[in-house]
Design a protein around this nucleic acid. Structure first.
Length: 110
DNA sequence: CGAATGACCTCTG
DNA sequence: GCAGAGGCCATTC
């Protein structure tokens, strides 16, 4: 459905704004949508986002740059492969030079 | 309606 | 500085 839930849509909107070869964190997205305290929900929303091609959930990692949710993807290292495919170096489920590839979402909404 | 779970983050010892 | 515990919010049973 188009508007499953405002919360989920917000997360999708921000995730879709993630540029190529860049990654962001759940907390950053949560804050961008105005729910910094619901960082956990951001990841939860990604659960449904993983099925959406419009939502690059593989570009979303935790605060440490670790692919915590890679288990939710089809392949075991699918998430890592996707990131590496974009030029992001990933090792042991940990993004290398995370701060360099880190991208902060902008609250363009509203 | 109440309880449990979850791809997290922040504070305190 | 590292380690552990709590909290917070939304969805699901």
């Amino acid at each position: 459905m188009t508007n499953s839930s405002n919360f989920f849509e917000r997360v999708y909107e921000v995730a879709k704004q993630i540029p190529y070869g860049r990654v962001t964190t759940y907390g950053a997205i949560a804050k961008a949508i105005g729910a910094a305290k619901s960082a956990r929900m951001v990841g939860y929303a990604m659960n449904g986002a993983s099925e959406r091609e419009d939502v690059p959930a593989h570009r979303v990692v935790n605060r440490k740059g670790v692919l915590t949710g890679k288990h939710h993807f089809a392949g075991t290292h699918l998430m890592q492969q996707l990131l590496e495919s974009e030029g992001i170096k990933v090792e042991d489920d940990q993004i290398q030079d995370f701060k360099s590839v880190f991208w902060e979402p902008e609250t363009t909404s509203t």
